[in-house]
Amino acid sequence: MVLQALLGHTSEARWLRYTRCHLRHLFPYVPKQPGYNKRLRRLGATIGWLVGMLARNTTLWTDDAWVADSTPVKCARSREAVRRSDLAGWAEYGYCASHSRFRWGLRLHLLGTLHGLPVGFALTGAKADERHPLLGIFETDPEPTVGRSGRS
């Protein structure tokens, strides 16, 4: 997965094909796509922890200003797909002003440094205001605020 990101492959299927053709000598076993996806999902928490540890060891972490932004994450288009979705009850309809339309899905909130280093994130329903998830980010992981002026 790390090599996939470093080489700029955004499609997992294409990445696995590329790996089988060109990188077989580096990977004695290349799983099929369902197995690869299962491994990535199981490693989600570990990857989050690793990115946090690497970020905290950079000079960008000590930036004086952080920025927050959010973006809609569309989960379904048709009413039929909305009713069948496993996200029913968690995802919701919300208005996206930048696209001038309603969407059914979630909202990804990101907190980062001015240089683009992610500090924290939250995934909420589509109607969520940006301020409340940011407080939740700091409640879930108070580590980013430790040692910063005005915070403990």
Rank of each mutant, 00 (worst) to 15 (best):
S149D: 08
E143K: 15
W104N: 00
A13E: 00
Q4P: 07
T62L: 07
A45K: 15
R84I: 02
C21F: 03
H25N: 05
K127Y: 02
K38Q: 08
G147Q: 14
D69T: 09
V146A: 15
T19S: 12
R20H: 03
K32L: 09
W15A: 06
R83L: 06
G147F: 12
L40A: 12
T10A: 08
A81E: 06
R151Q: 14
S152Q: 14
K32N: 13
H9M: 01
Q33C: 09
F27G: 08
S98P: 04
E12I: 12
G116P: 09
R103G: 07
W104S: 00
Y36Q: 04
M1E: 08
G94K: 01
S152A: 15
N37Y: 00
Q33R: 07
G105Q: 02
S85C: 13
G136K: 03
M53N: 10
A128E: 01
T113A: 07
F138Q: 04
P118K: 04
R148I: 08
L108A: 02
R41S: 12
L111A: 00
L16A: 05
L50Y: 09
L123A: 05
C75E: 08
A13R: 15
R101S: 09
G94R: 00
A45C: 13
L50S: 09
P72H: 11
S98A: 11
K74I: 08
G112D: 03
L108S: 02
R101C: 14
A55L: 05
L26W: 04
G120S: 13
T59S: 09
D64R: 00
G105I: 02
P133F: 12
M53D: 13
Q33F: 06
A126R: 05
F27V: 12
G147M: 14
L40G: 11
E139R: 14
G8E: 07
R131K: 13
S85N: 15
G35H: 13
V146E: 15
T140C: 13
L108R: 02
T145H: 04
P144T: 12
T62F: 07
W66S: 01
V67D: 03
R42K: 15
T62K: 11
A5H: 05
G8M: 01
R103T: 08
R42D: 13
S85H: 09
L23D: 10
V146T: 15
R83Q: 10
Q4F: 05
G94D: 02
S85G: 12
R41W: 12
V30W: 02
Q4E: 05
A126N: 07
R101P: 07
R41P: 10
